[in-house]
Amino acid sequence: MGVKPLEDADILRFYRPASKRLLLFDYDGTLTDIVQDPSQALLGEPVLEVIQELASNPKNHVWIISGRDRDFLGKEFGHMRLGLVAEHGAFMRYPGSKDWLNKCESADMNWKEHVESKMMDYVGTAPGSFIERKAAALVYLKEKFWFSDYGMSTDKLRKSLEKTIPIRWPVDITSGKCIVEARLRFIHKGQIVRQLAQEIKPDFELCAGDDLTDEDMFRALHASDMPQTNVFTVIVGGHGSDTYAQWCLTEPVDVIGNVFMLQQADRSGGVEGKGALLNNGKPRGSKWLPVSRSALIRANP
């Protein structure tokens, strides 16, 4: 059937009557634009306030599921009653708790030494490249992703790692936007999403992401027993025909528009009201409440 624009989805028809809603958002590339300096990708206060209000509704279970580390997520969202998942599923923190659960504390990590050695062969030879060290993963990144040849080194590195690492250890090698990642096979966003769906048993699910690591979430949700009419998996930005998402949005500002839409629906109790734009009787997704891009990013102090 193909991926369809989310503005054509009848989201509020299923959101309104739902008693348990699971709302899942990736961070970089989904809630914020991907920028050269990740420390500058910070949500503006108006957006944070809306997310906090959305999460304060007892019907809503809102989770940020990101590749970012615990320090960043704790600093940005720790004061809010949100569920947080760091490093693609290595750590999770339930709403209202200050404790992070380590999902990989008993795993054999000897593979890291071998992966890092191979990655180091590429660091220094490719402009703007470096290694990000995480609890359950090692990531080779090319920060200057506008270089025309950025894909060459990442492709070579991925193929080199694939020849040996997965054979010796339960480690997957994946590539995404300017990255090659080696991570424990059982640590991924899909595993967390399955766990949350089993615990919460929602009757409405919205999940937005923009990269290969988010496909695990999409796949997990579509494999659940929940009626698929109540599941909205959304790929942000460019996408290929092999995505598991059913819906698409152009950019993060559209995702935030949907967050504002759901907040307004909670306040009004329905789709009626000032500012509602309808498309053949259906709410037009993120177009229902346009958001200024200047509200999305704040200056990094």
Rank of each mutant, 00 (worst) to 15 (best):
110 N>M: 09
258 N>M: 13
90 A>Y: 04
272 E>V: 11
24 L>Q: 03
250 T>L: 08
294 S>F: 14
16 R>K: 06
43 L>D: 00
129 S>I: 10
50 V>D: 01
142 K>N: 10
152 M>Q: 15
51 I>T: 11
114 H>V: 15
19 S>L: 12
12 L>T: 10
120 M>E: 15
182 A>P: 01
57 N>I: 05
261 M>H: 03
24 L>R: 04
201 K>T: 09
107 A>E: 12
250 T>P: 00
177 K>A: 09
186 F>A: 15
100 W>H: 01
42 L>E: 05
114 H>R: 14
127 P>E: 10
194 R>W: 14
21 R>P: 00
150 Y>N: 08
179 I>M: 11
44 G>K: 02
119 M>K: 05
160 S>A: 15
59 K>R: 15
19 S>D: 09
292 S>N: 14
49 E>V: 15
189 K>S: 01
170 P>M: 06
163 K>W: 11
71 D>A: 07
9 A>H: 04
51 I>S: 02
147 F>C: 07
199 E>M: 06
205 E>Y: 10
30 T>S: 04
223 A>R: 12
277 L>Y: 10
6 L>A: 11
226 M>K: 03
171 V>F: 00
61 H>Q: 12
35 V>Q: 13
8 D>Y: 10
70 R>M: 06
34 I>V: 13
3 V>E: 07
138 L>Y: 09
259 V>P: 00
107 A>V: 14
52 Q>D: 12
73 L>A: 07
1 M>Y: 14
111 W>V: 06
275 G>H: 08
272 E>I: 12
151 G>H: 13
86 A>I: 07
218 F>A: 03
234 V>F: 03
79 H>G: 06
53 E>F: 13
200 I>Y: 03
144 K>S: 11
288 W>P: 00
7 E>C: 09
236 V>R: 08
